[in-house]
């Protein structure tokens, strides 16, 4: 079981208690790659990340979710359309929007402590003692204080994700962008991490975007579920998930939950089929021919 997290009311978790937050908007964003042939990845995507809400983005694999994250983070520029944070256009990477990557991006040559304290250290914002105290406080929060001097290669998969979460949190980002952060974890650890992350969010909600391909993970975490279409990707549907918080895994069998899941799966199934057929041109041709003969007997 993950450790219970203080609700932050006692002022113990300084960083969380002061979590800043912002609203982000994506309007009519298009993005293509390559010259010949041009591959259109995002086609007129519009999306709002509401303040202090956990938005989950789900879509078939390879549809362009990571591209959207990269554009939100400022690593890539959209071909057209605008991205804003609290009304200001996004011009490049910034510490107000931090990404937790698919596979861990902890620096292998730094210890857990050095990784977590990296941001404030390079920006020279805190005194050495202050940074030391702050880092240890956060490591304690995720139960990694005993691993402060270990290198990432000495941590388990779940520990690495926790370390990466607090490496972002210590910078008090206004928006957290989670790019399939629990991918590659074994099923049990993944469940625990989902619960852990839900508690962390519920303790002090900030603006979060969480990208996943797994429907149960998506509904369990989401305030709003955004379903993307197959490539070129656009937003197919937005579903508000009105399950009570704190979220419990028992909810995964409730009637409301199953209704959300059915609605989402209906759309996802169609999109996944397209992605599957795209991978096999032969199969697509066959299906095309088959539907024609079926249409004209």
């Amino acid at each position: 079981m993950p450790q219970p997290i203080s609700n932050g009311q006692d002022g113990h978790y300084h960083v969380l208690a002061q979590a800043a937050s912002a609203e982000m908007t994506v309007e009519h964003v298009c993005k293509s790659y390559g010259l010949k042939p041009v591959v259109k990845v995002l086609d007129d995507c519009s999306l709002v990340l509401e303040n202090r809400k956990l938005t989950v983005l789900i879509g078939p694999s390879g549809c362009g979710k990571s591209t959207l994250i990269n554009i939100l983070a400022g690593y890539e520029r959209p071909d057209s359309g605008t991205v804003t944070i609290d009304g200001q256009p996004v011009k490049g990477p910034g510490r107000d929007r931090l990404v937790v990557f698919q596979e861990t991006a902890l620096f292998p040559w730094m210890t857990t402590f050095q990784n977590v304290s990296y941001g404030p250290r390079v920006r020279k914002e805190m005194s050495k003692e202050g940074l030391q105290a702050e880092t240890m406080k956060l490591l304690k929060l995720v139960g990694l204080e005993a691993f402060a001097d270990k290198y990432p290669s000495q941590l388990s998969g779940g520990m690495m994700r926790k370390a990466e979460l607090v490496r972002a949190l210590i910078n008090r980002p206004k928006v957290m962008l989670m790019d399939e952060p629990f991918r590659g974890l074994d099923a049990m650890t993944r469940k625990l991490m989902q619960e852990y992350y839900a508690r962390l969010f519920e303790t002090k909600p900030g603006t979060n975007l969480f990208v996943t391909t797994e429907i149960d993970e998506a509904i369990f975490l989401a305030d709003r579920l955004v379903i993307m279409s197959n490539r070129p990707a656009s937003i197919r549907k937005v579903i508000d998930i009105n399950l009570p918080r704190p979220r419990q895994f028992q909810m995964l069998t409730s009637k409301e939950y199953l209704e959300y899941k059915r609605d989402a799966l209906e759309i996802l199934y169609v999109e996944a089929m397209k992605a599957f057929a795209r991978g096999k041109q032969d199969a697509a041709d066959f299906m095309d021919a088959y539907s024609k003969t079926a249409g004209n007997p």
């Binding site: 596979e103 991006a105 990296y118 390079v122 910078n171």
Partner: peptide, 15 residues
């Protein structure tokens, strides 16, 4: 060098 390391470092405010 993995681009994610550089990206993470840039986001965190590295010069």
């Amino acid at each position: 060098i993995d681009a994610r390391y550089v990206r993470a470092a840039v986001s965190l405010g590295s010069s």
